[in-house]
Nucleic acid binder design. Structure first.
Length: 615
RNA sequence: GCCGACGUGGCUCAGUGGUAGAGCAGUGGUUUCGUAAACCGCAGGUCGUGGGUUCGAUCCCCACCGUCGGCUCCA
């Protein structure tokens, strides 16, 4: 899911900020003209555009957007100047109170509470009849706002607070030129084309069935192939790196989650209780894998000689999420995490973190994610554990990054209540930022579960618990991959690596031979023996995103060759007369190298796209 | 959960206060055709669910469920 991290500083640096913010003013003015009595919330510039939160007398529907846009165009054409002026705080309060602009009054009042409100004055901006409380800056005239479009309507709470009134948020985008606007709209279309929900349906990847339950993903056969390959590779990589892979139960006795603190801190997201033994025993479905892994660690007395003990699991968890937040595979109620907990001593912590970090970077590279940005998130205000522990934990993370000389940003106070963490964010093929792997040092659970090992002096010592995920959840990761690859998976993950198309029925025996030869190498081959029109079968294979389509007929059978067409090739770009063994060699090589596909072209990205603005 | 929009056969969509259509997919047949959609036929829907208004509702009203765009939250 594209994240808006950095949006705030981005807004400040963005040279288009005045344009976008000005467009927000013009939009608010247009709504005020068309719907008198509208109250203004806030209307900031955001990445690629702007929004304004408004309290409109009647609900707006998408049909209203063209009208508002038309009115905006009139205002733009009228070419009013933006004029700045100042009022004292009292004047401002009186002005907006008289105008019935309650939210602006609320804002000014909050300025008073905030420290450093500048000398008691507030600034306002005016264009035409429209006046708004605003820091600015703005463009000079409304005529500077030319290439814009309103995109969507949504609800948003005043000040992002659920307990406060909900306003109507209008999203729009604006650019210096029509050409840039068109390019941006084209990018939005590209995002829609890549939407994993649409591709998931068209390519028969996954399904979410209402009767089965929303937020619960059925992995259909095609995507199950992808997952199986990912899991197989994941296990191999982890075995190579000294991980111990385990399986833990999906439900646990209530005692476990009382001790872990999950019931207290996370209970509203948990499924349960399940009442067993006439209701005397209460069990809950696991929302996280940590307690299970701790129990694995504690299955015996651990010696320092056994550490670091790296316990990993593709662990399926269930979490209740509110209905409105569910989104395809990317926001679900049941998912499988590639979870690991590394138990070690403080001496080993930094090195272990470093190893995890290297592995994480390798993961992202393999899938073609680029421009990783590293964040170190430090202690939040509300937290568990002593400052001493936080010092140690943050230092270990810092050192691990320092040793590697990787640049990173510090997200002060951005850690979770029980752990500081390293987050890796990456860019996908169309320039969207995604949350990648995270590494945390858990300062809570080792205490709660009294996780210890026996050190070289024969003493019990508290173990350090490093928590990490690389994929995150397979559902979210693979959902992201679908969009990243636009459905065109690398050969090693492709459900249909080769489609064999015989020209005519008399080529079937050779086609079967070819298919058998490829299958011998473990290649996933589809040979459709129902003889329909050849062109139709080629087209269908393309629609299924077969990695290669090979056409065989009499000529090929005689020469023991195949006619090869690579996915993504243009019309008439097939390569004829490729020796069968040569083709086998190429395909197995590409598969084993886990190469990115030839039709994978990360776009040269301009400004990155804000997913939120898709209409 | 909240605000708004939407919910017609597997998919995309049309339609009406008097109990429904199209294209694709499916299926049967014909076609045997060397690289991006051959032809003809058939079948498939209690129009999301439950109430209400009405002589009569898929179409109007209400509730619920679900989907979509956001908010909030998060893997």
């Amino acid at each position: 899911m594209a994240k808006e991290l950095g949006r705030r500083d981005h807004a400040a640096e963005d040279p288009l900020h005045p344009l976008r913010h000005s467009a927000a003013h013009v939009m608010a003015g247009a709504v005020l003209d068309l719907f008198p009595g509208t109250k203004l919330g806030i209307g900031p510039a955001i990445r690629n555009g702007f929004y304004y939160d408004l309290d409109v007398p009647r609900p707006l529907s998408p049909d209203d957007l063209p009208r508002i846009e038309a009115r905006m165009r009139e205002v733009a054409n009228a070419d009013h100047p933006f004029e700045r002026s100042e009022m004292s705080r009292e004047e401002g309060l009186r002005f907006f109170r008289e105008a019935g602009q309650d939210y602006k009054v609320d804002l000014i009042e909050s300025f008073e509470e905030a420290e450093g409100a500048d000398g008691g004055a507030v600034s306002i901006y005016r264009h035409g009849d429209f006046v708004d409380l605003c820091k600015g800056p703005h463009v000079k005239r409304t005529g500077d706002i030319k290439a814009f479009k309103l995109l969507s309507i949504a609800g948003a709470y005043w000040r992002g607070d659920e307990s406060r009134p909900q306003l109507t948020r209008l999203y729009g985008t604006v650019w210096p030129s029509q050409k840039e606007l068109d390019a941006y709209l084209e990018r939005l279309k590209e995002i829609q084309r890549r939407d994993h929900r649409a591709l998931g349906r068209d390519l028969e990847l996954f399904r979410i069935d209402d009767e089965l339950g929303s937020g619960l993903v059925l992995w259909l056969p095609n995507l199950s192939v992808v997952r199986e390959e990912l899991e197989t590779w994941w296990r191999k990589v982890h075995h190579e790196r000294g991980y111990t892979l385990v399986y833990t139960p999906h439900i646990a006795h209530e005692k476990t989650y009382q001790r872990s603190g999950h019931l207290e801190k996370y209970g509203e997201n948990m499924y349960g209780p399940l009442l067993l033994d006439e209701g005397t025993q209460r069990f809950w479905i696991k929302p996280m894998n940590c307690p299970g892994h701790i129990k694995v660690f504690q299955s015996g007395v651990r010696s320092y000689r056994e550490l670091p003990l790296r316990i990993g699991e593709l662990g399926t968890v269930y979490r209740y999420e509110r209905g409105g937040t569910l989104h395809g595979m990317q926001r679900v109620r049941g998912f499988t995490q590639d979870d690991s907990h590394i138990f070690c001593s403080w001496e080993d912590a930094q090195e272990e973190i470093g190893k995890v970090f290297d592995l994480a970077m390798e993961f992202m590279r393999l899938f073609g994610y680029v421009d990783p940005v590293i964040y170190l998130s430090t202690r939040p205000e509300r937290r568990l554990g002593s400052d001493e522990l936080w010092d140690k934990a943050e230092e270990a993370l810092r050192q691990a990054l320092g040793v590697r000389e990787v640049p990173y940003k510090i997200d002060e106070g951005g850690g979770v209540f029980y752990a500081p963490k390293i987050d890796i964010k990456v860019m996908d093929a169309i320039g969207r930022e995604w949350q990648g792997p995270t590494i945390q040092i858990d300062l809570n659970l080792p205490e709660r579960f009294d996780v210890t090992f026996v050190n070289s002096r024969g003493e019990r010592e508290r173990a350090v618990m490093i928590h990490r995920v690389l994929f995150g959840s397979l559902e979210r990761f693979v959902g992201g991959l679908i969009e990243h690859y636009a459905g065109n998976f690398p050969l090693w993950l492709n459900w249909e690596q080769v489609a064999v198309v015989p020209v005519r029925e008399d080529a079937l025996p050779y086609a079967r031979e070819v298919a058998a030869r490829l299958r011998q190498e473990g290649i996933r081959v589809r040979l459709d023996e129902q003889m329909a029109d050849m062109r139709e079968r080629i087209r269908e294979a393309q629609q299924r995103r077969a990695g290669y389509i090979i056409v065989v007929g009499g000529k090929e059978a005689e020469a023991r060759t195949v006619s090869v067409r690579r996915r993504g090739a243009g019309k008439g770009e097939e390569e004829r007369g490729v020796a069968l063994e040569e083709f086998v060699r190429r395909v197995t090589e590409e598969r084993d190298a886990k190469s990115l596909p030839s039709d994978f072209n990360p776009r040269d990205t301009g400004p990155s796209v804000d997913e939120a603005a898709v209409s």
